[in-house]
Nucleic acid binder design. Structure first.
Length: 876
RNA sequence: GGAGGCAUAGCUCAGUUGGUUAGAGUACUUGCUUGACAUGCAAGGGGUCACUGGUUCGAGUCCAGUUGUCUCCACCA
């Protein structure tokens, strides 16, 4: 017995049940031994303690669309899910909780106890985002779910670390890095966000030793003065040349510093004299190296001043700045202050202003890794979609600096370096060691952990069991496509590419499909602080996951940001409802014994059947072409238009004429065509809207156990019927014209009218009486050779004229005016086309098909013109 | 300073290698309890495709420039 669909579309009644069933049946769990070609994707792992937001929803929806289509096409399809330990973000959260609930810091607990708490947290909240992904319908293989800090991924991290270290691609060194005084850790360049802030330029006197003169120095960060170890001038600057070699006295501090020459200083900019603070500025650091200057670090890890700041020791950097400026002023060293807007680096996690400072950290030597990573992209081995993001990647990779990978956190992969307490020897090892291999002394492990992105860089192969040689790696690496937002090209995509090349010898994916950001209805970025985030789960609850997915997949071009609005989600839900009801209609008309899913024989098909099959097949072709090009939005809009405007608005309406003769042969044929086309629609729509399509599929006669593993529609040329298509299009044009005319004349639909048709396509219209009666409010349709009386409205389309006697409603003058208007328009078109067709350049250079099309058009307009002239003549 | 995006209907956006009279959703106007759907049906109004120039038989689409706007990267103290 066929299952009835509920009267109204209520997704919450079936989404969960269907998802559970898909998982139970193992549809998402592929067998690597299956010889079908592989299609594999790894999820950009969301933060383990995070919650699903619209960005995820978009990202997962796009992946699921690609994955589900390939699965239906018969690929051996794997989508690896998992989560990221998100070092800083997670640690901050747990510390926050610790502080608010227990008034403790992580130091109170100690490393081990604190990590236990983080794991507790992970176990408590780590599943939240996973279950949210399931609600969205993501067809991930949950049996292969991974976590960046699970045993396997951690092993991969260590393997990679040691390999790189042994190749001298990882080194430890004292370099200038970005320091977050709030998170108390080093950051990589990529983790610093710049934001413009209002600041000041302080102009300070630096007295010249032994002279009654001074040098004017401008700075935006006066508190770094305590770390100045030189003042630099450009050697070719005549105005400052005389200062080179002289000694200056740091105001208030009294320390002596030299004036050095370095062409880093720009001639003509400012005073031409630059204070050099090697320990607190990246450029100064380089100058310092060139001149062998001392590095004086003046701050502690929390950005309070240290002993080098003298009496300011212990003050916060900004407190010190205020006090110092006051003192400089009162001592007469402050020349002037001017307001100055400048870009300040901030921590991407906590937004605290970062402090550039020298520090002992671990780095990845980037240049040797960047070269092959660039080559892979230049050679097209890795392709960005849309193409323009290639440049984002190459620009960054071409200018990349060494990557600071050590973090002074506790939550993360602890760096596998061991220091001997006795001889000081450092040993980097894949396995933990307790004694020094050199002297046998006791060792202790490096306390720093690795940048979170170090482990996510390995995701495409660490999740597949590397460094072991697994059958997953064999089958599914490299992955097919990576789907992610443009905002993490540097953080993640770039690093995966060089990591894959370095450790696997192969790029991790061939295509990077980039999408934009989901913004709010006003176009603002969704953010916690603005409170304008839209919770995808609320949307799912209210409208269903399918509507959410539809709204996210439609109406925007790849790589562009999109706005999310009520309007959009409602439109999506309405479409789902439309599909639901169209399906209900089909189901209502089916008999219990209708189980056939194939089409009837071609000679049983009516004109409208052939018409819809033609249209359907052309749509299938377009959808496939666009899906292949990652134009998912275009593909979906083709589907939308076909479903609503062609299938529902026309074919179903046309089919009613036969369907309502329930026992007729024609009804049986119509039912099967309806089932065939509807099933095709459902399959094509399934990657976008998995739930509703499955629910309906299960109610219809169906060939496969589930739509998830049913076959994806392919273009079938044998089901394209151009003649029937053209024929029914003429009928549709006439129905449309009659409707328009009646609406203009305010004739209510209830008032049926006789229609007399004069047409050279009498065969076409002979079979169409029923359609016109049903859809154009005709009471009868008669095909006549001519209609002589002048009591009728004439409705002219290409190839046919309809006369509808409605004497009392016709104002002859208005009718004449209307027809003349149409005539003018038609003649305008004719003139335009004639012009084009008499243009020799056009005839000579345009493709023949285009010229022919224009000619055919002209012919049609000419025919229409004749008919209009005849109608006007009759009225006068 | 460098790179890129965007500019099309009141609003939000599509428009795929240049080729019908430039589309959709939404809003608006009018009429409809039409044997699936008012989350609907039918009809309609609404656009100088930012501006200027160029290439071409033909430009919303390609090129150059201008203006506006957003983003990313770098960063001069």
């Amino acid at each position: 017995m066929r299952k009835e669909l509920a009267k109204t579309y209520s997704p919450s009644e079936f989404e969960e049940r269907l998802y559970q069933n898909w998982c139970d049946k193992g549809y998402f769990t592929p067998d690597p031994k299956d010889p079908a070609p592989a299609f594999s994707v790894v999820i950009p792992p969301p933060n383990v303690t995070g919650q699903l937001h619209m960005g995820h929803a978009l990202d997962e929806t796009l992946q699921d669309i690609l994955v589900r289509r390939r699965r239906m096409e018969g690929y051996n399809t794997l989508w690896v899910p998992g989560t990221d330990h998100a070092g800083i973000a997670t640690q901050i959260k747990v510390e926050e909780q610790l502080r608010t609930e227990e008034g403790l810091t992580r130091y109170d607990l100690g490393r081990e106890k604190f990590l236990e708490r983080v794991w507790d947290w992970k176990h408590k909240y780590g599943n939240r985002i996973i279950s949210q992904l399931k609600k969205l319908g993501a067809s991930c293989d949950w049996t292969r779910e991974r976590f960046t800090m699970d045993e396997g991924c951690s092993r991969a991290v260590r393997e990679v670390f040691v390999n790189l270290y042994e190749k001298d691609l990882i080194y430890r060194g004292n370099r200038i890095i970005n320091w977050c005084p709030h998170c108390i850790t080093a950051l990589s360049d990529a983790e610093v966000e710049y934001s413009e802030q209002e600041g000041s330029f302080w102009h300070i006197k630096y007295p010249i030793k032994g002279e009654d003169a001074y040098v004017e120095i401008a700075t935006t960060r006066p508190e770094t003065m305590f770390g100045d170890t030189a003042v630099a001038v450009n050697p070719n600057d005549d105005t400052t040349k005389h200062l080179i070699g002289k000694t200056l006295i740091l105001p208030l501090v009294g320390r002596e510093i030299p004036v050095i020459a370095d062409d880093y200083v720009e001639i003509g900019f400012g005073t031409g004299c630059v204070k050099i603070t090697p320990a607190h500025d990246p450029n100064d650091f380089l100058v310092g190296q060139r001149h062998n200057l001392e590095q004086i670090k003046v701050m502690n890890d929390d950005a309070t001043m240290n002993r080098f700041a003298g009496k300011y020791e212990g003050m916060d950097r900004y407190e010190c700045r205020r006090a110092l400026v006051e003192d400089l002023k009162s001592e007469g060293y402050l020349l002037s202050v001017e307001p100055h807007a400048h870009n300040v680096g901030t921590c991407y996690r906590c937004k605290t202003t970062v402090e550039p400072m020298t520090s002992d950290q671990w780095f990845v030597r980037m240049q040797p890794l960047a070269e092959p990573a660039l080559k892979a992209v230049y050679d097209g081995k890795v392709r960005f979609e849309p193409e323009r993001f290639t440049k984002t990647y190459t620009n960054w990779m071409e200018n990349v600096h060494d990557w600071c990978i050590s973090r002074q956190l506790w939550w993360g992969h602890r760096i596998p370096a061991f220091y001997c307490d006795d001889c000081g020897e450092m040993t980097v090892s894949k396995t933990d060691i307790t004694v020094c291999p050199k002297c046998g002394g006791r060792v202790h492990q490096e306390s720093d952990v690795l940048d979170t992105w170090f482990s996510s860089a390995l995701w495409p192969f660490s999740t597949m069991g590397w460094p072991d040689k697994t059958e997953e790696l064999e089958k599914y690496y490299p992955t097919s496509v990576l789907v992610t937002g443009y905002d993490i090209i540097f953080f993640w995509v770039a690093r995966m590419i060089f990591s894959g090349l370095e450790h696997m010898g192969k790029e991790p994916f061939s295509t990077v499909f980039i999408h934009g950001l989901v913004r709010d209805a006003q176009g603002r970025k969704m953010s916690k602080s603005l409170g304008n985030g839209i919770d995808p789960l609320e949307i799912i609850e209210k409208y269903g996951a399918d509507a959410l997915r539809f709204a996210l997949a439609t109406g925007n071009a790849p790589g562009n940001d999109m706005r999310f609005s009520d309007e959009k989600i409602e439109a999506a839900r309405n479409f789902a409802n439309k599909l639901w009801n169209a399906s209900r209609f089909v189901l209502m008309n089916l008999d219990a014994e209708d189980e056939e899913t194939a089409l009837p024989a071609l000679d049983e098909l009516s004109v409208e059947d052939k018409w819809i099959l033609s249209r359907y097949n052309n749509m299938v072709k377009n959808v496939n072409v666009n899906m292949d090009k990652y134009e998912l939005g275009v593909a979906l809009s083709d589907l939308y238009d076909f479903t609503w405007d062609i299938f529902c608005d026309w074919y179903i309406e046309l089919a009613k004429s036969r369907l309502f003769e329930k026992e007729s042969k024609g009804a049986a044929v119509a039912r099967r065509v309806l089932v065939y086309v509807l099933t095709g629609i459902l399959k094509l729509l399934h990657p976008f809207m998995p739930f509703i399509t499955e629910e309906i599929y299960q109610s219809l006669p169906h060939a496969s156990e589930s739509i998830v593993i049913s076959s994806y529609p392919k273009f079938d040329e044998s089901l394209v019927f151009p003649a029937e298509e053209a024929s029914l299009d003429r009928v549709i044009a006439m129905i449309g014209a009659i409707r328009t005319r009646r609406a203009e004349m305010n004739v209510p639909p209830s008032r049926k009218a006789k229609v007399y048709l004069v047409t050279k396509y009498s065969d076409t219209f002979k079979g169409a009486e029923a359609f016109m009666i049903r859809l154009a409010s005709a009471s009868s349709v008669e095909i006549v050779d001519a209609y002589e009386k002048d009591d009728a409205v004439s409705i002219i389309t290409e190839g046919a004229t309809a006369f509808i006697p409605m004497a009392e409603m016709i104002d002859l003058d208005k009718e004449r005016a209307r027809l003349s208007g149409e005539l003018a328009k038609t003649e305008g078109e004719i003139k335009r086309l004639q012009g084009k067709l008499s243009n020799e350049g056009f005839l000579a250079k345009a493709p023949a098909a285009v010229v022919d099309a224009e000619r055919a058009k002209l012919e049609k307009y000419n025919a229409t013109r004749e008919a209009l002239l005849a109608a006007i003549a009759k009225l006068s």
